[in-house]
Computed example of a mutant assay.
Amino acid sequence: MKKALKILLVDDNTDHLYLLENMLKQLGFQYASAKNGKEALDKLKKDDFQMIISDILMPIMDGYKLCQIVKNEEEFKDIIFIFYTATYTSEKDENLAYAMGADKFIRKPTDPDTFLEIMNDLIENMTSSSITSATPLESEKEILKLYNQQLVEKLEKKVQELEKSETNYREAYNRAELYKDLFSHDISNIFQVILSAIQFVDLSLGKIDLDEEIDEMIQIIIHEVERGSNLVSNIRQISQMDREVFKVETLDAWEILKERIEILKNSFLKPINIETQLETRHTKVKANALIRYTFTNILVNAVRHNENEIIEIIIKVSLVQKEGKDYLKVEFLDNGQGIEDFRKELIFSREDSPSSGIGLGLFLAKRIMDEINGYIWVEDRVKGDPSKGSNFILLIPATD
């Protein structure tokens, strides 16, 4: 059954998509990928799939609408539909998913073994023709009401998060380039929620008569658009101020590293051997919480850019001095593809070619290290031979 089963993955987050593709590939499943609901529908019309694993919040067409269309089309309705989401995780979100016709609702993150067990149960039920979708709500009107309520709640939460972060952006002119990509993603999500609501309303207009309650819901959405637009305008003005803010606090780098290592091991099915060498008890540093991102980026790159059957990573932690100051030195040695000498500095800049596969990750990591007065660079794991892997080195200011 595994060889015959073909799965369609739908997610606009390339990292999440990569993890799913990697897992299914190692388990021997056939799969194809799409970045949104519309792209998924196009693929469904051209190929036969027995299962769909979809995120919910996506551009152009979200997962809810995709599920509704799939479960209402005669040729697609028997396809197993699994929601796998990190944004829509409440009980209401789950109820709406089943109302739309979903066969399973899974919250991210879920470890690979549990995920595989769920898939196998659904496949077994499909094979025995015993799979049944959840009972739908009584009417299109009821679904529309629940859908709009969920969208407004998510929209309110996103706007509140951005309003809370407005103070941090107020003095961020010198870091504008660092936050531009991160902020634009959040803004894109806000307006995508709005677009999804409008699309759903448009889809349902021909089926029901809108009452005052539904009309009020639409007015709320319009109001939230105005709030979002005002927020964007405010932040654009704030970004012009020639001041900067970057909160530095005392953090335990060793505890953060252990947490990041566990997350990495649960994200990949391929064998990963990680050896840690702790050469100091003093692991407290003066850094920002974004140091987690730096650790994660280096660890994930060590796996992604590695074609060996077994991934080998050695992490060394020691205390060193540079120019009379104490630093926690963290080294990540891997057996991956390595980095040619001419690119050793280039990879930390935005000029590095997108085709390298590293993208903005190391550029952001470098900016984070600069903000905490730290250092980051890369050497050959075996001096003079880039093909034997890399050694990414961080110097993080140590506490007194």
Rank of each mutant, 00 (worst) to 15 (best):
L231Y: 02
E244M: 15
R243S: 11
S229D: 12
E244A: 15
I214R: 01
S239M: 15
G206H: 01
R236L: 13
V245D: 12
L251C: 02
E224C: 06
E212G: 01
E216Y: 08
E244T: 15
D211A: 00
E212A: 04
N234V: 13
I222E: 09
I214H: 02
D209R: 03
G228V: 07
H223K: 12
S233M: 06
D211M: 00
V248F: 05
H223I: 09
S233G: 07
D209L: 01
Q240K: 15
E213M: 02
R227I: 10
R236H: 12
I235C: 03
R243M: 13
I221M: 05
E216I: 04
I220R: 10
E213V: 00
I221V: 04
E213R: 00
E249W: 01
Q240D: 13
R243H: 11
T250Q: 13
E244H: 14
K207W: 03
Q219M: 06
L210K: 01
R236W: 08
D215N: 11
D211S: 02
S229R: 10
E244C: 14
N230P: 05
N230S: 11
M217G: 10
L251E: 05
I220Q: 14
E212Y: 07
I221H: 01
H223G: 12
E212C: 03
N234H: 09
E212R: 06
F246P: 06
E249R: 03
E249P: 02
V225K: 13
L231C: 05
N230R: 14
K207L: 01
I218Q: 02
L251F: 02
D209T: 03
Q240F: 15
V248M: 08
D215V: 02
R243E: 12
N234I: 11
M241E: 10
M217V: 04
E244G: 14
I221P: 00
S239E: 13
V225C: 09
I222R: 15
E249G: 02
I235M: 04
V232F: 04
N230W: 06
G206A: 02
L251K: 04
M217S: 05
E244F: 15
V225G: 07
E226P: 07
Q240L: 14
Q240P: 10
K247S: 08
V225R: 11
V245F: 14
S229G: 10
E244D: 15
N234Y: 10
I208P: 00
I222F: 12
E212N: 05
I238P: 08
F246L: 07
L210A: 02
F246S: 06
T250Y: 10
N230G: 11
N230I: 09
G228I: 05
D209C: 03
D211T: 01
V245I: 11
S233Q: 08
V245M: 11
N234K: 15
V245N: 14
R227Q: 09
L231E: 08
N234A: 11
Q219H: 11
V232S: 04
V232N: 04
R243G: 13
N230T: 08
L231I: 06
S229Y: 11
E216T: 08
I238H: 15
L210C: 01
E213C: 05
D211L: 00
F246G: 08
G206N: 01
G206S: 00
